[in-house]
Write a protein that binds this DNA or RNA. Structure first.
Length: 326
DNA sequence: GATCCGTGGTA
DNA sequence: TTACCAAGGAT
């Protein structure tokens, strides 16, 4: 067994891996072929970077781009968003998914305004205290917005480390202490290089070292890859899928689609029974309401979904109807 | 630590 | 078509 705290690439692959060489190779690759994303622009504000990181949680870049652009134009600073009702953040979250993120981003904007003088805080500790900001997002914002040396560990970085260094097809099913130690051991000591290293490993995982059918022929560090050297062994477990059809989540999503389109409280009966004349419904909700009814979910399930949304603060009762939070 | 939380593209 | 998967966080 490798003693804790001493796990370095050279201990795993004696003589096979030159850490500085890896740093240089990925740094060059990133400079040459990284995607140009607006939140990577030198003029992107810390607020823009924070918004992008939250939107990118479990959500692909291509779907984040248009919503991020809309948000930045609409709310260029935390103060702009903090002045709005929380429901506006949810409404303009659109179909990004996990709408609680919009709620928390709004709460984060309020906290930034009230507790940080309107400026996104720059330390990992302060960032971590913001709603919706966990260890990954705090590290990412500290690194990418404030240039700090942070151990950034996301799903892409975990997968690259698993393959490149550990020789596994996939990382462990949950983030382990050993993975954090490895990430720390791999992080360049130079602060500026460490920021680019975090970004480049993440980019490699997103574009080349993908979960399914990785493009190893295009990989700038394939010669050092422990997984390739081992003959691409298969994963030691089969990932369990995320159920969707027939779940409460599906019903919640359909209800949220109705609320986003509504310009007035939607009577609760409208969620349970298709009104003979949708003219009685708030304008615009006809299509999402029909989609909800098409699910034909049991009254008990619909009840659970509505209660859950109220409990989570994604919906509120007004005049006997549901609407986005004020 | 396991579970819950949206949505849509892709193999 | 079904199932996997995507820059996680909160409980």
């Amino acid at each position: 067994m490798t003693p804790p705290g001493t796990m370095v690439p050279s201990a795993t692959q004696p003589g096979a891996t030159d850490l500085a060489g890896l740093h240089h190779a990925l740094d060059g690759w990133f400079a040459e072929s990284a995607r140009e994303l607006p939140w990577r622009s030198p003029d992107c504000s810390p607020w823009g970077i924070l918004v992008s990181e939250v939107m990118l949680q479990q959500t692909p870049v291509v779907r984040v781009l248009p919503v991020w652009e809309d948000w930045m134009q609409r709310w260029p600073t935390p103060a702009h968003l903090a002045k709005e009702p929380a429901g506006e953040a949810v409404r303009h979250w659109g179909r990004l998914g996990y709408p609680r993120r919009a709620l928390r981003l709004h709460a984060a904007a309020v906290a930034i305004q009230e507790q940080h003088g309107g400026a996104v805080p720059g330390t990992h500790h302060e960032l971590l205290s913001l709603p919706g900001v966990g260890d990954y997002t705090a590290a990412a914002v500290a690194a990418f917005a404030y240039g700090q040396r942070e151990t950034v560990v996301d799903t892409n970085i975990r997968r690259v480390h698993a393959r490149l260094v550990s020789g596994h097809a996939l990382p462990a099913q949950s983030l382990t202490a050993a993975e954090m130690r490895l990430a720390e051991a791999l992080l360049p000591h130079d602060t500026s290089l460490s920021v680019r290293w975090n970004a480049s490993v993440m980019e490699l995982g997103a574009v080349v070292c993908t979960a399914r059918s990785p493009k190893c022929a295009e990989c700038p560090v394939r010669a050092s890859c422990a997984w390739l050297a081992a003959g691409e062994p298969p994963p030691s477990y089969t990932p369990k899928g995320q159920a969707w059809h027939g779940t409460d989540r599906q019903v919640r999503g359909a209800v949220m689609a109705v609320l986003r389109e509504a310009d007035a409280p939607v009577p609760r009966e409208m969620f349970e029974h298709a009104p003979a004349d949708l003219g009685f419904a708030p304008s615009g909700v006809g299509v999402p309401l029909a989609a909800l009814h098409r699910l034909n979910s049991a009254p008990q399930q619909l009840g659970r979904a509505l209660d859950g949304l109220l409990r989570d603060g994604l919906a509120e009762l007004h005049d006997g109807g549901l609407q986005l939070p004020a």
